[in-house]
């Protein structure tokens, strides 16, 4: 069912939802941006319409809500393991997010839930609590290319939400929300709208193979990339992590096992004993990441990994653009294909 809300009605809805759910949405943090005087747009808990930044793109994806940067897996007391799974009794979560990010979470599901015979229970527990409130994009930003990657659309949401001049249009798909939405909203015809065009168009490489490995493209990138890993931190589809143990300084009998986000761009990712490591060059690392996003993941899971959110382009201090990289790869494959 579709509903129309005034700002006040939507705030009442949020207030009631808040009694049962934790609500996460894009928010503006004034003056917290990367450079002086700029704002940071990031995910945080929200309770009112005015807090939700419908018209801004978050620098980071919502992935950390269901896949925290740093997560304690076990506590150690003496020599025993105590599981630290997210508590069942915690509230479910509503996440306001865009089509690209819902597509991103489907890619996280592929690796964390489906790859191999085991499911990552830590992710599964938080993921199971998440309900998606799809934010309609009324504009595409400079770096977006979701239309090219096909991640401009999704059917995977509980509620579609479009804000327009202080009013909110919603389409409820998930029956669990029907009653509460009908309580505060007026029935209305609401058709989901998706972005149909981005400024940037990317020709996805149809097939891409190791013939691109020796190309000078990677040397160009090697000269620019500083291996800071920002492009992977902000990416809605990057999920790599490292597990590490710590003990408490004031009580060495106790400690914990944690996992923290890791990145294939950052030193140490492949280090082994006796000084053996792989992809020492930054160009090789960018090639590894690009091949994953554009080919390797698809081979394994049937999905193009990159969802075209453009955040890595926004984040890179060296102005390395992934959409340009994809176009270059298409060109290069075209060239080697003709040979």
């Amino acid at each position: 069912m579709g509903y129309l809300f005034s700002a006040d009605a939507f705030n009442s809805l949020l207030a009631e939802l808040k009694t049962r759910y934790k609500i996460f949405a894009p928010k503006i943090y004034r003056g917290k941006g990367r450079t002086a005087g700029t704002d940071l747009v990031a995910y945080g808990e929200a309770g009112e319409l005015a807090e939700i930044a419908f018209d801004r793109k978050t620098a980071f994806s919502p992935k950390e809500i269901i896949f925290p940067v740093n997560q304690t897996m076990f506590y150690f007391t003496k020599e025993e393991f105590q599981e630290n799974l997210p508590p069942k009794e915690d509230k479910d979560m509503i996440i306001f997010l865009r089509a690209c990010d819902i597509n991103g979470i489907e890619r996280m599901d592929a690796i964390l839930l489906q790859n191999g015979p085991y499911r990552d229970v830590y992710y599964e527990k938080l993921r199971g609590k998440a309900r998606f409130f799809l934010i309609a994009c009324d504009q595409s930003w400079e770096s977006c290319f979701c239309v090219s990657t096909g991640s401009n659309r999704t059917e995977n949401y509980s509620v579609y939400v479009r804000e327009e001049n202080g009013q909110v249009f919603c389409l409820v798909k998930d029956r669990d929300f029907e009653e509460i939405f009908s309580k505060y909203g007026r029935p209305a015809d609401v058709e989901p709208r998706f972005i149909e065009e981005n400024k940037i168009r990317v020709r996805l490489p149809e097939e891409i193979d190791q013939r691109v490995f020796g190309h000078k493209l990677w040397e160009e990138y090697a000269a620019r990339c500083s291996a800071c890993g920002r492009c992977t931190v902000c990416c809605p589809t990057c999920t790599c992590f490292t597990i590490q143990d710590i003990f408490y300084r004031d009580n060495p009998d106790c400690g914990e096992r944690r996992r923290v986000w890791a990145s294939c761009l950052i030193d140490g990712f492949t280090d082994m004993a006796a000084g053996v490591s792989f992809r020492a060059g930054y160009g090789e690392r960018l090639r590894f990441r690009a091949m994953h996003k554009a080919a390797d993941f698809k081979k394994r899971f049937g999905l193009f990994m990159c969802v075209g959110c453009g955040r890595c382009d926004d984040a890179c201090p060296e102005y390395i653009s992934f959409s340009k990289c994809l176009n270059r790869l298409s060109e290069i494959m075209g060239e080697v294909g003709q040979r």
Partner: peptide
């Protein structure tokens, strides 16, 4: 290099 052993960590 391995962290998880079960296809999750990516290393």
């Amino acid at each position: 290099r391995m962290s998880c052993g079960i296809g999750k960590c990516g290393h």
